[in-house]
Nucleic acid binder design. Structure first.
Lengths: 227, 227
DNA sequence: TGCAAGTATTTTGTATACAGTATTAAAAAT
DNA sequence: ATTTTTAATACTGTATACAAAATACTTGCA
């Protein structure tokens, strides 16, 4: 909150390298704040207040908000500024339907074109994830889980697909992050992941697609229960 | 180019109602300019110049550029401003793969949940499109073609799906717009559309998906030939 | 003539200032 | 006491100003 008084105005609290422009940094910063729940859905964003909080003037902050609005994380109400977007259960379900379809597509392509090294890399992530599961470390498990799904998409070597997948993924991340499933469901999810990995390693496209299908459909059930 | 001198600075050339904010208008304006080729891919955007051209100061213009950057129509190079994004043939192909997958998904859902009126509405568009085809009116045909594909997605009643489909659609629009196919290919496309409509009216999800699959795969061939 | 270094100019990035609009609070009237 | 009107306040939208970076140009030198 504007504690330092030495420098002219804004412009600190940024990593020294910082090739990225300020509005770029704000974008990632705000995105994290929204995903992690620092900014609640439906909450109005006051530019002055948030700007001071971040030690930044309104101009780059507004630019960042426009960017996030296009991403769908923020809603722009004319003459009334920005509001953190709130998603209905149907919205979430719809997003998961699309995500599921995209991961199935990615999986099929990956079976055809992925390198052995790429698949082996996912296996490493998977094994690490299982260890976190056995240790009961939910946060670590969750992060690796995300990485694996993103990784499958990455194997398809289709930039627009990865981009759009990431876009929707970022919207449901917050929800998934909250949703702590019970031990049985968690065990099921891990078992599904094991079958997914096996199908991928066999490059069995149809089985992989089917396994992803049920895994992500179950994922919706798991989320819905805590919604 | 700043011909009027009466009013203080920018702020004209806008419809009188205009609930939308200025940056919002600029977004749609620039998007059209990019799609229609007024701004060529790879072209650098000079904020001052473009701002004067549009009769607008740099601030809302920059906000609009951030928005379009998130949409993927422009690229933001740090300290060097905005450039109209250029897509490689692989990019286009990748986008069409995703678009195809999404339309197939939408088609399946539409067969299950669309209202009879919704389907009838598409039939009207289709018949009008065929008339434009027979009259050889390429632009009108093209527009209705787009509307039909968007309409199928709309029938699925899945906002994120429609949004993402529209996002990718806007990127390939320019390419498709340019691509004037020969008479045989054009005839094939129309025949495919007829089969698509028929499958939709029968609510035959699998056939519809298959027809969309081949139609959009052929679409890529048609585009590739003029690329 | 070709190259290099230094200077000028353009352009972006950020901050601030100002105007218009919405929202809130207060006061007056029913 | 409730409602309506009006004034004050706060916030957004846009423009302008200034600083830093990049690009272009010019001049000096080989």
């Amino acid at each position: 909150m504007a504690s330092e008084v030495v420098e002219p105005a804004g412009r600190r609290a940024v990593a020294t390298i910082s090739r990225q422009s300020l509005h770029g940094e704000i974008v990632t910063r705000l995105r994290d704040m929204i995903i992690e729940g620092d900014l609640q859905p439906g909450e109005r964003i006051y530019e002055n207040q948030l700007g001071e909080e971040l030690g930044v003037s309104r101009t780059p902050l507004r630019e960042a908000l426009k960017f996030l609005a296009s991403e769908g994380l923020v809603e722009l109400v004319p003459s009334r500024g920005a509001v953190v977007k709130r998603f209905s259960p149907k919205d979430i379900e719809d997003m998961l339907i699309v995500i599921r379809s995209m991961e199935m597509l990615a999986g099929r392509i990956a079976c055809a074109i992925a390198s052995d090294e790429g698949i082996a890399g996912l296996r490493l992530l998977h094994d690490a994830m299982v260890r976190h599961y056995e240790a009961g470390e939910r946060l670590e498990y969750y992060k690796l889980n995300q990485q694996i799904h993103t990784g499958i998409v990455a194997l398809a070597d289709n930039a627009p697909l990865a981009e759009v997948h990431g876009l929707l993924q970022s919207r449901v991340k917050r929800i998934r992050f909250i949703g702590h499933e019970g031990p049985e469901r968690w065990a099921n999810a891990v078992a599904e992941h094991e079958r997914i990995m096996a199908a991928l390693e066999r490059r069995d496209a149809e089985t992989l697609a089917r396994e992803l299908d049920v895994h992500l459909a179950n994922g919706w059930e798991r989320v819905k229960s805590v919604l």
